[in-house]
Computed example of a mutant assay.
Amino acid sequence: MKIDLTDTTASKINKSLVEGRRAIGTPAVGMVLTMVIVTDEENAYDSIKAAEEASHEHPSRTLVVIRRVSRSPRDRTNSRLDAEVRVGADSGTGETVVLRLYGEVGDHADSVVLPLLLPDAPVVVWWPVDAPEFPAKDPLGALAQRRITDMYAVEQPLRALEARVASYTPGDTDLAWTRLTPWRSILAAALDQARAKVISAAVESEAENPSAELLARWLGARLGVPVERVVTAGPVVTAVQLGAENGALRIDRPEGPLATLSLPGQPPRTLALKVRSTSELIAEELRRLDADEMYAVALRADGEEGTSRA
């Protein structure tokens, strides 16, 4: 069910949410959090779809904030709020409100969002693109326990990474880090099996890959060795090699959903290591709303480059 509201207010939106739930016969919905998505029109559809898919695991109220850019000084005086309320099958397992802010009301998005937050429930803010330089100090970010950014969405991801280092506040995270969860799990398990001291490490990826940089920093912090960055033509992170006293431990994923794990003295094994969808990444982040200490460690680890080769 969809309800369109033009030149509206937060109280009218709340009223429409109640009416919509009653109309579809579900006056009480067991939502566990409020997800605030701050995006633009171009990226709104994909962001909403990802949030709705993630809501099957985490029923939530999703508030989509779209600031409409004013094209002339006169437009700045035409300040209004339009909303699209979605409940039932049109909003996953929760409910979705698309907020379009025109004129000066766009400068006060936090005042629009605040009355629409679920009472006594955690708040997560996600910027699919154009994240603020200091997420925790952003007016919307200040409302949240968890703040999600994505360094893949910027033209210079490694410069954005250094900005995240400078602005990090407990509760911050980035999807470039979330993409590494399967890699970190496989590496941890492989090291347990190898039972050997690591003396060198290398991460292979396409150039300017923020996940590869975070993985290299994490490995350096955990293993206490310099980590070489190797530029390859493959997509995202393509391989990790750890040199040990008894041989090399290597994970190769040049393309596709499968990777090859090679351990010293053992035959190669094939493992599942697919590139996950945005909805899977968001669902993972919503499973924990406390501070991600390992992300902080990776961000703040020494960014020593080591030797880079193509």
Rank of each mutant, 00 (worst) to 15 (best):
3 I>T: 12
6 T>I: 10
6 T>P: 01
6 T>V: 09
9 T>S: 12
13 I>N: 04
13 I>D: 12
13 I>T: 11
14 N>F: 00
15 K>D: 14
17 L>C: 07
19 E>F: 08
20 G>A: 06
21 R>S: 11
22 R>K: 14
25 G>W: 08
31 M>G: 08
31 M>R: 06
31 M>V: 10
32 V>Y: 05
34 T>S: 13
35 M>K: 05
42 E>H: 04
43 N>T: 11
46 D>M: 07
49 K>N: 13
49 K>E: 15
50 A>R: 05
54 A>V: 03
56 H>W: 10
57 E>Y: 11
59 P>H: 03
60 S>Y: 00
61 R>L: 06
61 R>S: 07
62 T>M: 09
65 V>P: 06
65 V>L: 02
69 V>T: 12
70 S>P: 12
71 R>H: 11
71 R>M: 08
72 S>F: 02
75 D>N: 11
77 T>D: 12
78 N>G: 01
78 N>F: 09
82 D>W: 02
84 E>V: 15
89 A>R: 13
91 S>E: 10
93 T>S: 13
93 T>V: 11
105 V>R: 09
106 G>P: 14
109 A>S: 11
110 D>R: 01
116 L>I: 07
118 L>V: 04
120 D>F: 08
120 D>T: 12
123 V>N: 02
125 V>R: 00
128 P>N: 01
129 V>C: 01
130 D>R: 06
133 E>W: 03
136 A>V: 09
137 K>E: 14
145 Q>I: 09
146 R>E: 11
156 Q>N: 14
157 P>E: 01
160 A>I: 06
160 A>P: 10
161 L>C: 07
161 L>M: 08
163 A>N: 14
163 A>P: 09
164 R>W: 03
164 R>M: 13
164 R>F: 07
170 P>M: 00
172 D>A: 08
175 L>M: 04
175 L>A: 02
179 R>V: 09
181 T>Q: 10
181 T>C: 00
181 T>P: 04
181 T>R: 12
183 W>S: 03
184 R>L: 10
184 R>V: 12
185 S>F: 08
185 S>K: 15
186 I>P: 09
187 L>Q: 06
189 A>E: 14
189 A>P: 08
194 A>E: 15
195 R>Y: 04
195 R>P: 01
199 I>G: 10
200 S>H: 10
202 A>V: 10
203 V>F: 04
207 A>L: 08
207 A>G: 05
208 E>Q: 12
214 L>V: 01
218 W>T: 06
219 L>F: 00
220 G>I: 02
222 R>K: 13
223 L>D: 10
224 G>L: 04
224 G>W: 04
226 P>V: 02
230 V>R: 13
238 T>G: 01
238 T>L: 02
240 V>Q: 11
241 Q>N: 03
241 Q>C: 02
242 L>S: 10
243 G>V: 07
246 N>M: 13
247 G>I: 07
252 D>Q: 07
253 R>F: 08
253 R>G: 10
254 P>I: 03
254 P>K: 02
258 L>D: 15
260 T>G: 03
266 Q>Y: 09
271 L>N: 03
273 L>A: 07
274 K>I: 11
277 S>R: 15
279 S>A: 15
279 S>F: 14
279 S>D: 15
281 L>V: 01
281 L>W: 02
282 I>W: 07
289 L>Y: 11
292 D>E: 06
294 M>C: 08
296 A>K: 14
297 V>R: 01
297 V>G: 00
298 A>W: 04
299 L>A: 07
307 T>F: 13
307 T>C: 09
310 A>Q: 12
